[in-house]
Simulated scan of single mutants.
Amino acid sequence: VDLVKSGKVKESLIDDAVRRILRVKFELGLFDDPYRYCDEKREKEVVGSRANNEGVLDMAKKSIVLLKNEKNLLPLKKSGQKIALIGALANDKNSPLGSWRIAASDDTAVSVLEGMQQYKG
């Protein structure tokens, strides 16, 4: 399906995305040397390194959202509650796989609906 020809996506949006990607590749020097960062020694030192793991943990901690517990709604009662799951992804078994989806088989994740259905009452 050609999303640009059908009018669902503006060509200027595609142009902007491509421009940003190419700019970063240029700044990284990948036009001069496309294999610049492909180095087995560097890979062993960087991938899964303590510094990277600590950085990822720090980012995760900083991205946590704290909810206000107005009217003592939390924690949710374990029974007698009705919960509405709304939206196209509620019963989707691919979106929970996130960016790792490329390495997974379709429809292998547990959907939010399936997960919620495990709790009876």
Rank of each mutant, 00 (worst) to 15 (best):
V1W: 12
V1T: 10
V1C: 04
D2Q: 01
D2C: 04
D2R: 02
L3W: 04
L3F: 05
V4S: 03
V4A: 01
K5S: 14
K5H: 02
G7L: 01
K8Y: 13
K8E: 15
K10A: 15
E11N: 11
E11G: 14
S12F: 04
S12G: 11
L13F: 12
L13V: 15
I14V: 15
D15E: 15
A17D: 08
R20W: 00
L22I: 08
L22R: 08
R23F: 05
K25F: 13
F26Y: 12
F26L: 13
F26I: 13
F26Q: 13
E27T: 09
G29N: 04
G29E: 06
L30R: 00
F31M: 06
F31Q: 03
D32Y: 01
D32A: 11
D32L: 11
D33S: 09
D33A: 06
P34T: 01
R36C: 03
Y37C: 02
C38L: 09
E40T: 08
E40A: 13
K41I: 11
K41Q: 14
R42W: 12
E43W: 05
E43G: 04
K44W: 06
E45Q: 15
E45F: 07
V46Y: 05
V47W: 01
G48S: 07
S49W: 02
S49N: 09
S49M: 10
A51R: 15
N52T: 13
N52P: 08
N52Y: 05
N53H: 12
N53A: 14
E54F: 12
V56H: 02
D58H: 07
M59P: 06
K61E: 07
K61M: 07
K62N: 11
L66S: 13
L67E: 13
L67C: 10
K68N: 15
K68E: 15
K71P: 00
N72M: 01
N72W: 01
L73R: 14
L74V: 07
P75T: 13
P75H: 07
K77C: 00
K78P: 07
K78M: 07
K78A: 09
S79C: 02
S79Q: 11
S79R: 14
S79M: 03
G80N: 02
K82D: 12
K82F: 06
K82R: 15
I83Y: 01
A84Y: 14
L85G: 08
I86Y: 09
G87A: 02
G87H: 00
A90H: 01
K93Q: 07
L97N: 15
G98W: 02
G98P: 04
S99K: 06
S99Q: 04
S99A: 11
S99R: 04
W100A: 11
W100Q: 10
A103G: 04
A103F: 07
A104Q: 12
A104E: 12
S105D: 10
S105E: 14
D106E: 08
D107E: 08
D107Q: 06
T108W: 00
T108N: 05
S111R: 04
V112P: 03
V112R: 02
L113C: 05
L113S: 10
E114V: 01
E114T: 08
G115S: 00
M116S: 10
Q117S: 09
Q118C: 11
Q118E: 15
K120F: 02
K120I: 08
K120G: 10
G121K: 06
